[in-house]
């Protein structure tokens, strides 16, 4: 059901862990839907993301999207990191099954939440970043038979 890239990032997740004294930390998702992601960012004085780590409670896709998201934002500027959308994460993983698309939304949201925390701690405003939702779940409409 998963692409080879998803399986690779699930089995060998990149950047798992915590960053002591991180510049920004964001936690999104909830236990109800079964996915919680926490993203740690280390941002230098020039606004470059020097390091990024994550911890995730969730399914294979949740782990893989978190792992890929950390890879995509590492070394980027804050503005570039904001452009890492759920689509970009999905494409980098060669796609996700339809029921797992919400995991990639969660990964995008986790980056935003960590950036928001960074902005609040440093009393700055990041252009184009709004306060992230802490709870992501798709309003799924089921078909009636």
């Amino acid at each position: 059901m998963y692409s080879e890239k998803v399986m690779d990032h699930f089995q060998n997740p990149r950047n798992v862990g915590e960053i002591e004294g991180a510049s920004g930390v964001g936690t999104v998702g909830n236990a109800k839907c079964g996915d919680i992601m926490r993203m740690y960012l280390d941002i230098d004085d020039n606004g470059i993301i020097q390091d990024c780590k994550f911890k995730t409670f969730g399914c294979g896709a949740a782990v893989a999207t978190s792992s890929m998201a950390t890879e995509l934002v590492k070394g980027k500027t804050i503005q570039e990191a904001l452009e890492v959308t759920n689509k970009a994460v999905m494409e980098a993983l060669d796609g996700l099954p339809p029921v797992k698309v919400h995991c990639s939304l969660l990964a995008e949201e986790a980056i935003h939440a960590a950036l928001w925390d960074y902005a609040e701690k440093h009393h700055i405003k990041i252009e184009g970043l709004s306060k992230p939702k802490s709870d992501i779940s798709e309003g799924e409409e089921e078909e009636e038979y």
Binding site: F10, G34, D35, G58, C59, G60, A62, H102
Partner: peptide, 27 residues
């Protein structure tokens, strides 16, 4: 979370199941 556990067990040749959302096709 159960699905992660199932995939890892599968890699060891163990077939099992879970009551997690991911295995039910809903959230």
């Amino acid at each position: 979370e159960g699905e992660s556990l199932l995939i890892m067990l599968d890699m060891e040749g163990i077939a099992a199941s879970s009551g997690s959302a991911c295995t039910s096709g809903s959230l």
